[in-house]
Simulated scan of single mutants.
Amino acid sequence: MFPFELVRLTDFENEVRIVVQSSMDGGFWEAQIEITSLFVKGSTLLVLSQSKLEAWAQALDVLSLGQDVTWMQMDRGPTVSVQLEGERDCPEVVVEDESISMVTVRIPIALEDGWISDHQARIRRFIENLR
């Protein structure tokens, strides 16, 4: 099952991925956020819990209604925001790592139609594999 690509937001120039690397004790999963663009490349570790996974599924539902979301806000570790109408006339993904590196990266990504339903299927597949 691992590694499992939970999130893959890409337009083939810019990309934000969240890859679940392994299971941890206590119902947690070690993951990594990876950001790649023509300008910047970086990654940071992330610990996922059942509640964070459920929050991502809910965030996708909100995105499908045409609303921006912030996932994992007010939690330890990175925050991921998806803004459907960014400053460059396309969606933007903002990753903030205030708790460790204090770095914020804003990546414009021209997402293809169907990306939300693709990610809803990814989260369902991951949760179903846990059972």
Rank of each mutant, 00 (worst) to 15 (best):
E92C: 11
D118A: 12
A110I: 04
E85H: 13
S49N: 06
R76K: 15
I18A: 03
A110S: 13
T79D: 04
L45D: 13
F39T: 05
P91Q: 10
Q50T: 14
G66K: 04
E85R: 14
F4N: 09
R124L: 02
D75R: 15
K41L: 01
L111P: 08
Q32A: 12
V95Y: 00
L9N: 08
Q32I: 14
G86R: 13
W56K: 07
I35K: 07
F2G: 04
D25F: 12
E92D: 06
Q50C: 07
M1T: 14
R76A: 15
T70Q: 12
V105R: 11
G114A: 07
E96H: 00
D97Q: 05
V103H: 09
H119R: 04
Q73S: 15
E30H: 10
R88N: 13
A110E: 13
D75P: 00
D97I: 06
K41D: 06
E13N: 13
S101Q: 10
D61P: 00
Q21L: 13
W71Q: 10
S64R: 14
M72Q: 10
A121F: 02
Q83H: 11
V16K: 12
N14E: 11
A57H: 01
L60H: 03
I127L: 14
T104R: 14
G66F: 05
L65C: 10
